[in-house]
Simulated scan of single mutants.
Amino acid sequence: MTQAESYDMIVVGAGISGLSLAYQVAQSGKKVLVLEAENRIGGCLNTHYHDKNDFWVEMGAHTFYATYTNLIHLIQQLGLEKDIVAREKVGMKVFTDKHEKIMSKVNKFELLCSGPNLFFSKRDGKTVKEYFGKIVGKKNYEKVFNRMFSAVIVQKADNFSAEFFLKKRKTKSKEHPKSFVLKQGMQSFMQALTQSENLTLYYGQRVTSVQKSDEFFVKTEDGNEYRTKDIAFAAAPSVAGEILSSVSPNLSTYLKEYQTKNITSRTVVLSKEQVTFDPVSFVIPLQGACLAMVTRDVISHHESRGFSFHFEEDHKSQNDQEQFMSELLGVKPDVIGDTKEAKHQLPVLELGHRTRIEKIKQLAEKDNIYLTGNYFNGLSLEDCVERSTQEFKRYLKNNN
């Protein structure tokens, strides 16, 4: 590998935020390098491909929606519309010591009495607990809804900013299913983003430092060096902050302030005969360290069923996690067999997020640095692509 190769832009991080930005810049004719610290792309998009019967199951993000118009635009550009499959309509459950209907533990009278608060309450300056507790009722919130909301963002929701939770979107595609997946899983979308002829991707390249004179000089852990006119960070805010400490100290400080939560995802594939309960889209445990179980049942398969369990990291040993998995699935522990594990890191968007992120944007623009990720507009896939598209447009404006 030639030392100090030169690029128009280097993007640090190959999750959906980094690759959606890199793809758009590369499509504009610029030479782009993506440096990924891990040996896989995707970040919180992580498809496990079962090696026996052409079966896959998502270990991370699992659904596209018709309201994801920025993301749908990329799907169209990539020629993947033919692979869109509408999710089958299967139910949702909660779990205590058995599977129960999603609203079975909700006090309907309290919900009816509290519901009108929806029309008078504002999200600004409130946590999820403060805002939704009034709408669903405090007892309902504590008993059921805090677990439901935590399942949505795969972290405890109480102190999450209500402003950035379950956001309403102004745009919606009328030509696509309300919710859908791709025939070959989310990873097929990520892989397609890497196929631009102007885009180079290197795995296992952990960036350790960035220096700047007329250009940015990037150095990786194994000693490789690259130079670029522009640089973008699509890594966790703490990681980006650490790397930027010498180039942009003020920006670095703000980025390193962001808290993150580590999630362990554990996935198992079983034959249809081994699982006795009806197809379900996901199950929310109402207690314990497991935040949610998401299934592959939304696309039926002739032979297999797949299940991904998301745990708060380090709260349970692998044995304890697999014991819980067997209980929820209603099978003996030895039936579980080998499970696949993935680690995910998610930012915590607490009160004051909008103010902090506006300051980060100002500092980044001042120092000619591009930033994207799930800590800007929100945690959803659309929020990530939306932010990357905003940064792409800023890049075009700066390079006209």
Rank of each mutant, 00 (worst) to 15 (best):
T260I: 09
F311L: 08
V268N: 01
V294D: 03
R305M: 01
N262G: 10
T295I: 00
F309Q: 01
E322A: 00
D314M: 07
L328I: 11
F311Q: 09
E257I: 06
Q274T: 09
V294Q: 06
S317I: 15
V268E: 01
S317L: 12
H301I: 01
T267Q: 01
I299Y: 08
D314L: 05
N319G: 04
V269S: 07
V280G: 05
F324A: 13
E327W: 04
T276K: 11
A292F: 05
Q287M: 08
F309P: 04
S265N: 10
N262P: 04
E312Q: 15
D314W: 10
V294T: 01
S326V: 06
Q321P: 00
H301N: 14
G306C: 04
E312D: 13
Q259W: 08
D297F: 01
S265C: 11
H301L: 05
V298H: 15
Y258A: 00
N319R: 14
E273D: 12
R305Q: 03
Q323H: 14
S281Q: 09
E327G: 11
F277V: 10
V275N: 02
V280P: 01
V269A: 08
E313R: 12
L270K: 13
L286Q: 05
M325W: 04
K256W: 04
V268I: 01
F311Y: 12
F309N: 05
C290Q: 11
V269R: 09
E312L: 15
D278G: 13
K316G: 00
F324Y: 06
V268H: 02
G306Y: 02
E303T: 07
I263S: 03
T264G: 13
T276F: 11
N319F: 15
S304D: 13
A292P: 11
Q321W: 05
F307E: 04
Q287A: 11
I284C: 12
L291E: 09
Y258K: 03
S265I: 05
I299T: 10
E303C: 13
V283W: 14
V280E: 08
V298R: 10
I284T: 14
L291A: 08
G288F: 06
I284K: 05
R305L: 06
V298I: 08
S300H: 10
P285N: 10
H301R: 07
R296Q: 12
S308A: 11
P285C: 07
G306K: 04
L291V: 03
S300C: 07
S300R: 09
